[in-house]
Nucleic acid binder design. Sequence first.
DNA 1: TTGTTTTATGTCAGATTAGACATAAGGCCA
DNA 2: TGGCCTTATGTCTAATCTGACATAAAACAA
Lengths: 109, 109
Amino acid sequence: MNSSKKRRLQRHGWAVADAAEFLNLTPREAQFVEVKLALAAGVRRMREQRGITQAALAERLGSSQSRVAKMEAADRSVTLDLIMRSLLAVGATPGDIAKLIRRVEPHRA
Amino acid sequence: MNSSKKRRLQRHGWAVADAAEFLNLTPREAQFVEVKLALAAGVRRMREQRGITQAALAERLGSSQSRVAKMEAADRSVTLDLIMRSLLAVGATPGDIAKLIRRVEPHRA
DNA sequence: TTGTTTTATGTCAGATTAGACATAAGGCCA
DNA sequence: TGGCCTTATGTCTAATCTGACATAAAACAA
């Protein structure tokens, strides 16, 4: 991980970690973060595919553009609830969502 | 839905609805609630399968028995975040979680 | 370049959820 | 019946998250 991204993440409260660094977190927490990242990335991808701006999505959600930006960045201040609502708001089906989650690497037992 | 359950849900702040009644909620909100219910039910099922008590799960989560009870009831005061962490805490894999979500009925477009 | 649109970041007050605790209720066994 | 274990419900305060706003940065045209 490059150090500027690292600093940015740390500013937002993440225990910065990838691959080996994930050892800072418990395996379960690391997995949780991965799920969150995967779903947030799904929101961005589907939103862009549909040509919807963050502001437009925010309006559908009754939220704000800044929050959508933070959500897509999987900022610590964003709950899975908002991410899930966003997925549904961009038209993701349960099947789409399931697919995003299934791709997350299971952690070694 | 029987009326006692209905009353119980209403006490907890849910706009009570199933099938036709879901028309109270926007389709997206109804879908969100269904996802939440499905995942919460998954926690209960997997926890029971493994013979773990709510108190034991709470300890793994650094939470309390009462919160786990509310979570399994998909109480309004419980976020998807806690439900997701719980699934991982009872050993659900991303595949397991994906399966729970995929079963949710997509709402008619 | 300049202007326009979109996205990113920072902050805040108000709303919501958190874990904790007490206690009721249910289930089970002797 | 009486204990014992487990789950359910209600209620606190502290912690966290929310939408909103301002503004910076980036992306893209003209």
